[in-house]
Amino acid sequence: MNLKKLQNIDKRILYILLAIVIVTPLFVRPSKHPDAVFDEVQNAFNTIDNMPDDKVAFVSIVWGPGTIAENRPQTEVLMRHLFMKHKKFVVLSWDMPGTKLSYDVGKALEEELGMEYGKDWCHLGYRPAYVAMISRAMGEDFQKQFAEDYNNKPLKEMPLPAKIKSAKDIGIVIDITPSATMGTWLAYFCGPYNVPIVTCPTAVMSAEAYPYLDSGQVSGMLNGVIGASMYETLIGRGNTRTEAAATAWSLSCAHIYIILLIVLGNIGYIAAGKKAKR
C-alpha cells in the first residue's frame, strides 16, 4: 500500500465523512451523558442552586442562530434548573434573532413544567448598547431601563419584573454567549454590585474564562455543549435523550475524526519523507 497517498485524501471524501460523523448522533440521539462532571460545571450548579429565593436570576442572551448548537442547550438546561428549583428569572437578549430563540426556549419549558409567565419568569426583549446598559443604567434603576417586556406589556403589570428595583434584587447573572462578554459583566456590573456570575461560552471561548474562575470572580462555567450535557446529569436528566447529549456525542465523534485525519496525514507525510530520502 502506498502510504504516501494518505496525505492527499480527496477533499470531497473528507467532507462527506465529516457530515456522516456529525449527523449520525443527532439522528440516533443517544441518552448517555458524560460520566465525569467538571468542577466549573458543578460550581455553576451550586451557585444557581444556592441563590436566595427572594432574589431574581438575570439571564443574559448574546447568542443567535450561528451558535445555536452550543448555546441553546445551555439556555435550555439552565432555565429548566431554575424552573425546577422555583427560582425566578428574567431574560434579556443583546442579539436580535437570539431574542425570539430564547423566548421560544422559555415558552416551551413554561408549558412543559406548568409555570406562569410574568410570575416565574419574564423576557425583557432585545436591547442594543450592551456596555452602556450594563454599566450602571441597569443596576441603578431597573424599572426606568426596562419599562416593557418582550410582548410590549408594562413590567409594572407583572408581579416578577415589577419587584426588581436595582442590582440589589439580582441574585446571579447567567451570561450565555458565543463571545467574550463575561469581562464586561465583571467590570461594570458583577464587580461593582457584588453579584455572582456564571458564564456559558461556546467551547472555543471557554479557555479565556479559566483565569477568572481561578480568581473566584466567575462562580462557574458551562463550557460549550459538553458543559450543558454535564449540567443535565446534575439536574437528574443523565439518562434522557436530549439535544445537549446528542450534540455532545456529535462533537465527540467530530473531534476523534479530526484526530484520525491528522494522524493519517502525518503517516503519509512521514512515508513521503522516507521515500524522498531514499
Binding site: 462533537l251 465527540s252 465523534c253 479530526i258 484526530i259
Partner: peptide, 13 residues
C-alpha cells in the same frame, strides 16, 4: 490532541 480528546466524553473514555 490531549485537549480535544480530554474535553469530550468519548475521548476521556
Amino acid at each position: 490532541m490531549i485537549i480535544m480528546l480530554g474535553l469530550v466524553p468519548l475521548g476521556s473514555a
